[in-house]
Design a protein around this nucleic acid. Structure first.
Lengths: 353, 353
DNA sequence: GTTAGCACTCCGGGGCTGAGAGTGCTAACG
DNA sequence: CGTTAGCACTCTCAGCCCCGGAGTGCTAAC
């Protein structure tokens, strides 16, 4: 409840619901999320000891339907929450639970097991998230708002081929190969790097661009490569997105065959990121997109729970889960929030220089 | 046909087949691979103008069945190739076609588009392979037979945290974070690296281990980290395996739901690699494992086409496709062979120092 | 050796049916 | 007035039957 503040994107409670209607809606959502089938009045009264008869529940359901919170797929066969119903549930009806302590401990344990390396953290985050949320997870590498160079090195691989390794102020590492116009040996490369590195540490790609103009010869060549490599860090590339856990998605009844493929294509292709990322990057905290609320049309049958993570003003990454609209939002939100905090802490440790 | 030499792992043609039987077997395999359904005598004579009547085909089929090449799932409903039948097809009946020129050109084009970087090549190889072979692809990073150090650098991230970057003789790069027992600054790190690097270039992890014993203080500390990092390159880790293209697998009728999950777990967990890799690493060229021929039990319903790639004696990686036993082996073999050659060429360019 | 004919088998899809679950409406009850 | 019991109706789903299509083995004839 108390998280309504940063979850509610908009809040159109046109018809104020009675307390009992809220209870019924809550039960419908919970029941349907769990079973996947439409839920009827009789079933509800049987499973939950509400003090009233099925007939009364039917009345309430009819009103909920009129107000647009639930929907009857067929003349008979019970009700299913609408997107609006899910939204109301998430914003007003759901307890914002912490991730159970057991899970927290287990997760921390797993992170301690793994090598201290960004790549591994991201991979692990994706796996863990998929598991605890029971959905498909997506994690992007953290990316500096505006990367600043800390250091670079040149390592010769072949007479005319060298490896440029650069480290940003935010401890991100990037390596690119450079084709040299003429043969150079390692000592020459080292001298070159040593001579130039002091000049450009702490600068952004744009600032280095200015130095490139001023420089000449091989210095100019190296600097321009450094600049381009640094610039490459400003954009998220596809390979830097990890996802995990579509086994979970495949086992959902509603995504038997083709839908799973669509989902997959969505994640592989950048469509997902391109659509969601801009919307989310600015807002901090956990955000929830349900059904038609989603930025991309292909996502209209899905629910998304995402959060940014990272160190404020330094680096930010994105992490979240994607599932059918009929998903356990409570668990997903807990998981995403916890993972975001954990990853942020890890980043902070790394950057607190 | 001419490739029987390096494809045939064993070759038990107990009952010599007549020419016509070979034709029938070939057609059965082709037809079944394409349609996925059992193939009957009548259908064959209708689709392919063989000079004989269905009855004759039935005779031949009966003999093929007796010899164990095909199998009737139900009393009626046509025949399906057995594992043995597929093997015979692959070893004796299949034309070893080159990958069509169009595909070759397209693939080369894609590789030119991408940055000159090992990571990207592997990723691309997986994607391309999955696409051209129409199956799930698996590509492992190349890994030196015994890695030798070429160069390393130390870059300070925080007072007590540094990044160790090492490059092997085979141009593989590895970065690990090192927790320092006491604060050090960048100049000190650079001096340390410069002082030590000459001593250990060209050495293997084992050889460096000896130097560690001899060294003292921070030199000893650094060298032991270098050694461990180098050793880390000797084993394939899970994260260095790319796979792609299970959309293809999902659309296969025989892997509707649960099987797809099993398949997936297989690839994620190292089971696949652990089982297949040892078997294959020693043999060069394309290898085919069909059904029960597979090293791992879980793979008994699959076919695998794999090849090593890399530079002989320097680095080797693995690349291949996994599909249902009923897969288009011809296309897969062409694709795998071509990709292995291409990747090998790329590696060779990189290592021809 | 090949083929036509025949009787038989089996799968798969279409249509039917009955059980189960749910609904709205109405009338009665406190 | 809110709540409830009863009722007639609707719709889904699983099981069943049935039939057509495809395939088979066998036998007899060419």
């Amino acid at each position: 409840m108390q998280q309504a503040s940063h979850l509610a994107s908009y809040d159109q409670e046109m018809v104020p619901l009675t307390d009992r209607q809220r209870v019924v809606l809550k039960l419908i959502v919970q029941e349907h999320v769990q079973s996947g089938r439409p839920v009827g009045s009789k079933g509800l009264t049987e499973r939950y000891a509400i003090g009233v008869s099925p007939a009364t529940i039917r009345h309430e359901m009819a009103e909920l339907e009129a107000a647009g919170y639930v929907q009857a797929l067929h003349t008979s066969g019970g009700r299913v929450p609408t997107d609006q119903g899910y939204r109301y549930f998430v914003h007003h009806l759901m307890e914002a639970a912490e991730l159970p302590a057991v899970d927290q401990i287990m997760i921390r344990h797993q992170f301690r097991q793994v090598e201290v390396q960004l790549e591994h953290w991201i991979e692990l985050a994706a796996t863990v998230l998929a598991e605890t949320a029971g959905n498909v997870s997506v994690v992007t590498a953290p990316r500096p708002t505006i990367p600043r160079l800390r250091h670079f090195e040149l390592i010769g691989l072949q007479p005319k081929l060298a490896l440029l390794i650069l480290v940003t102020h935010e401890s991100l590492v990037r390596q690119v190969m450079i084709h040299w116009p003429e043969p150079v040996d390692q000592p020459a490369l080292s001298r070159l790097a040593d001579a130039l590195v002091a000049d450009v540490t702490g600068l952004t790609a744009d600032e280095i661009a200015a130095r490139v103009q001023a420089a000449e010869g091989s210095a100019r060549f190296v600097l321009s490569e450094v600049m381009m490599a640094l610039r490459g860090l400003e954009t998220v590339s596809q390979t830097e997105v990890r996802h995990s856990g579509w086994q979970n998605m495949l086992s959902q009844p509603e995504f038997g065959g083709d839908d799973a493929r669509g989902m997959l294509d969505l994640l592989r292709g950048g469509a997902f990121l391109n659509a969601v990322l801009p919307q989310i990057a600015s807002v901090s905290g956990v955000q929830v997109f349900i059904g038609d609320e989603n930025p991309a049309d292909e996502l209209r049958r899905f629910g998304i729970v995402v959060s940014t993570y990272g160190v404020d003003g330094e680096v930010t990454g994105l992490l979240g889960v994607v599932g059918p609209t009929r998903m356990a939002y409570g668990r997903s939100i807990s998981s995403v929030r916890y993972m975001a905090r954990l990853m942020s802490d890890l980043m902070a440790d790394l950057y607190s220089a």
